[in-house]
Amino acid sequence: MDKPWFDPKTGILMLDEYVAEMPSFKKIMADNVVTDDEILTHADRVTELLHQLEGALPANVKPLATEAITELAVLYALHRLREV
């Protein structure tokens, strides 16, 4: 998980490339079916990770991390809304 977020040569985001490598993704997609239980379990995992992150972040970094996560969520929401 200590991989770079951006390609050092092009500056292009690389986080998307790690999605397919995640054990959680591989496990859920193994049968090509996504069940309600799998989504609920994964939502719990994300919640737990966010709790851990919030507790581990130094006070001076937390506002930046909060802004980055929420701005990503804003961009995603805007993009999806524009497609509707």
């Binding site: 292009i12 985001l13 961009l75 995603y76």
Partner: peptide, 16 residues
């Protein structure tokens, strides 16, 4: 389209 990072990626690639 469902990738959370897709809007960032398409914007970066269009910039290039």
């Amino acid at each position: 389209g469902y990738l959370v990072f897709w809007p960032v990626l398409i914007s970066q690639m269009w910039g290039m």
